[in-house]
């Protein structure tokens, strides 16, 4: 087994008095797609947002325990969240391109982090990102058009391109296909599979079948607890826990 890239140990997260995650131990391996599944409010999104500390934006959100990325504590006073988020990218549920041109959307991260030293380098990296996101062929001749003129699926791929432009180590995805039709979903799923070679991907999904299709590892959350985590094949054929079985087969239990 490969060494885990992200490791949570005894992780608790609170929103005010309400505890959202209870004592989570979870390993996320590098260059794999890890799917987080579970019913609404089970804490899977909370777990995802803990990884790049987006929960910091929520007042009175408290973290307790240990969460390491590549051996470094994420919740440490020495950690700069800007540096963290530059290396742990995120794609959201609803495609949210900036109200700017396609080019500017992808170039934004490069610009703020000063990752391109010249205009031509900027253009090259934007092109590379759009190609990696499988969007280049569709929009190469209209880079100056607004990002939200694209279709939903294209917008989501633009958001993925924007994220990979800064070349993070990890990409977090929060139900990236929930607003898309099945064809656009399939395109994104294929893209996620190809991105796996270069990035570690953690994806929250409501669709168990999507988790089964695209992930190598699956973690099942229920009521703030991690019920079961394992290889996706095993989780979807012979889950160890009855709760998992009930959830993935759609039973009330």
């Amino acid at each position: 087994m490969t060494r885990p890239f992200i490791a949570a140990r005894g992780m608790n997260v609170f929103y005010g008095d309400k505890q959202a995650l209870f004592d989570i131990d979870l390993d996320i391996e590098a260059n794999k797609v890890t799917a987080l599944i579970g019913p609404s409010g089970c804490g899977k999104s909370t777990f995802l947002r803990t990884i790049n500390r987006m929960n910091d934006l929520i007042a009175n959100c408290r973290f307790d325990g240990s969460l390491q990325i590549g051996g470094q504590q994420v919740y440490d006073t020495a950690v700069d969240v800007v540096a963290l988020r530059a290396q742990v990218g995120m794609v959201f549920q609803k495609p949210n391109p900036f109200p700017k041109s396609i080019f500017d959307n992808v170039a934004y991260g490069l610009k703020i982090h000063g990752l391109a030293s010249s205009k031509s380098e900027l253009q090259d990296r934007v092109e590379w990102s759009l190609k990696s996101a499988g969007l280049w062929d569709e929009i190469a001749n209209r880079l100056d058009q607004p990002g939200n003129s694209l279709s939903g699926g294209q917008q989501q791929r633009l958001c993925i391109a924007r994220t990979i432009a800064v070349q993070p180590k990890v990409i977090l995805m929060d139900e990236p296909c929930s607003a898309l039709d099945p064809i656009a979903t399939a395109v994104i799923e294929d893209l996620i599979d190809s991105l796996r070679e270069d990035y570690s991907i953690v994806i929250v999904t409501h669709s168990m079948h999507q988790a089964a299709r695209i992930s190598q590892r699956t973690a099942f959350f229920h009521l703030g607890r991690l019920i079961e985590a394992g290889d996706t094949t095993q989780m979807f054929t012979t889950p160890r826990e009855e709760q998992t079985q009930n959830y993935i087969t759609g039973r009330t239990g």
Partner: peptide, 8 residues
């Protein structure tokens, strides 16, 4: 119905 696990 695309069953999984036991259902499948």
């Amino acid at each position: 119905r695309q069953p999984v696990a036991l259902d499948l």
